Simulated assay, not measured.
Amino acid sequence: MKLKLKMFMRKFWTAEETEIMIQNYPDKPTVDMIKLLPGRTVSGITGQASKLGLHKSEAFMKSPMSGRISKENDIGFDTRFPANKPGWNKGLKQKDYMSPEKIENTKKTRFKTGQDPHNTQPVGYERLSKDGYIEIKVRHLKNGDSNNKNFEFKHRIIYEKNYGLIPEGMIVEFLDGNNRNFDPDNLILRTRKENLLQNTMCDSSIVKRFLGIKELEEVEKIINEMPKLIELKRNLLIKKQKLNGHN
């Protein structure tokens, strides 16, 4: 029991150790502080420096001791490849710079012909696009930008399955605005112009673009509290567009 208590006894910092920290920590590598503070560890010294509000000095951070790359301290220059100079093994075959034993060892970690990475997803896998739409993996191409070509929007797949091919220039929209409602009756075709008009006439767009309110919380507040104002503005826009079209 006495041994266990000794192992977990906390070693408090003395006034002398604190003074050594204040005088030396800002200008010395932390690992060198161990020589001045026997029995202390690097993590312990770093933690105590944080408690004391100590930081490395500007001169130290610009010196080679900091290990940072800067204009004053260009570490690694001697071992860096010079500009426009090829690597030492350029144009050589593997057997020219590796022994047969080492070449044999590399075979253990090589990709086999036709092998897929460990994170390859099967056809039918669904993912969320950056715009918030569900995509389905429909093919397994491997070349170039095949990752994007392997996926199609789920709502377009369901529309074509139920109604046939989507005409060129047309897009599939969600009738109720919910892009998780894949009921075929909720999927409709629109031209890009109709889609633009639809987006322009939605409540949030009117509040943002035509009432000049951008903050999301304020937009939601206006939508909930002033539906008549939004509808009035929408009707004025529709009449204006019809008038422009007539002219």
Score class of each variant (00 low, 15 high):
residue 98 M to D: 00
residue 100 P to A: 13
residue 111 F to R: 13
residue 61 M to D: 05
residue 106 T to N: 11
residue 63 S to P: 04
residue 54 L to M: 05
residue 92 L to S: 12
residue 85 K to H: 08
residue 60 F to V: 00
residue 73 N to Q: 11
residue 63 S to M: 04
residue 117 P to V: 11
residue 126 E to C: 12
residue 112 K to R: 15
residue 100 P to Q: 06
residue 116 D to T: 11
residue 65 M to F: 10
residue 85 K to P: 00
residue 81 F to N: 11
residue 95 K to P: 03
residue 84 N to T: 03
residue 75 I to F: 06
residue 75 I to T: 05
residue 96 D to C: 05
residue 47 G to K: 03
residue 112 K to E: 14
residue 110 R to Y: 07
residue 79 T to N: 05
residue 66 S to I: 05
residue 78 D to F: 03
residue 53 G to C: 10
residue 88 W to E: 13
residue 107 K to T: 11
residue 54 L to T: 01
residue 69 I to Q: 04
residue 123 V to H: 06
residue 92 L to D: 07
residue 91 G to E: 03
residue 64 P to D: 06
residue 92 L to N: 08
residue 66 S to G: 10
residue 54 L to N: 01
residue 106 T to F: 10
residue 124 G to L: 06
residue 51 K to R: 15
residue 82 P to W: 02
residue 92 L to R: 15
residue 52 L to H: 03
residue 96 D to K: 05
residue 67 G to A: 06
residue 58 E to T: 11
residue 109 T to G: 14
residue 108 K to P: 01
residue 119 N to G: 01
residue 119 N to D: 15
residue 50 S to I: 09
residue 72 E to M: 06
residue 55 H to Q: 15
residue 58 E to K: 13
residue 115 Q to P: 10
residue 100 P to G: 02
residue 74 D to A: 09
residue 123 V to A: 04
residue 71 K to T: 11
residue 109 T to K: 15
residue 76 G to R: 02
residue 67 G to H: 02
residue 83 A to Q: 11
residue 64 P to K: 08
residue 105 N to V: 08
residue 80 R to M: 14
residue 48 Q to E: 15
residue 50 S to D: 08
residue 119 N to A: 10
residue 87 G to W: 04
residue 52 L to R: 02
residue 80 R to Y: 06
residue 49 A to L: 07
residue 123 V to Q: 09
residue 115 Q to W: 05
residue 83 A to N: 10
residue 107 K to N: 10
residue 91 G to W: 02
residue 74 D to N: 09
residue 61 M to T: 04
residue 89 N to W: 05
residue 116 D to L: 14
residue 110 R to G: 06
residue 123 V to Y: 07
residue 95 K to D: 06
residue 48 Q to M: 15
residue 81 F to R: 14
residue 104 E to G: 12
residue 78 D to S: 13
residue 63 S to N: 10
residue 46 T to F: 06
residue 115 Q to D: 12
residue 85 K to N: 00
residue 55 H to F: 07
residue 49 A to G: 12
residue 67 G to Q: 02
residue 119 N to T: 13
residue 49 A to V: 07
residue 56 K to S: 03
residue 93 K to L: 13
residue 104 E to T: 13
residue 56 K to Q: 12
residue 89 N to I: 12
residue 62 K to Q: 15
residue 76 G to C: 07
residue 124 G to Y: 03
residue 53 G to Y: 05
residue 118 H to G: 01
residue 83 A to L: 14
residue 47 G to Y: 07
residue 67 G to T: 02
residue 113 T to H: 14
residue 60 F to C: 01
residue 122 P to Q: 03
residue 76 G to W: 07
residue 96 D to A: 08
residue 90 K to C: 11
residue 109 T to Q: 14
residue 113 T to N: 15
residue 96 D to G: 09
residue 121 Q to D: 00
residue 125 Y to C: 09
residue 122 P to E: 04
residue 81 F to H: 13
residue 79 T to C: 09
residue 69 I to G: 00
residue 59 A to I: 07
residue 118 H to L: 10
residue 97 Y to I: 06
residue 112 K to C: 04
residue 111 F to D: 05
residue 75 I to W: 06
residue 79 T to K: 12
residue 82 P to D: 09
residue 57 S to D: 04
residue 89 N to L: 11
residue 72 E to W: 00
residue 54 L to D: 01
residue 57 S to R: 04
residue 67 G to F: 03
residue 53 G to E: 07
residue 86 P to N: 08
residue 47 G to Q: 03
residue 47 G to N: 11
residue 122 P to W: 07
residue 80 R to T: 12
residue 51 K to T: 13
residue 75 I to V: 09
residue 58 E to H: 09
residue 54 L to P: 02
residue 110 R to L: 14
residue 105 N to M: 15
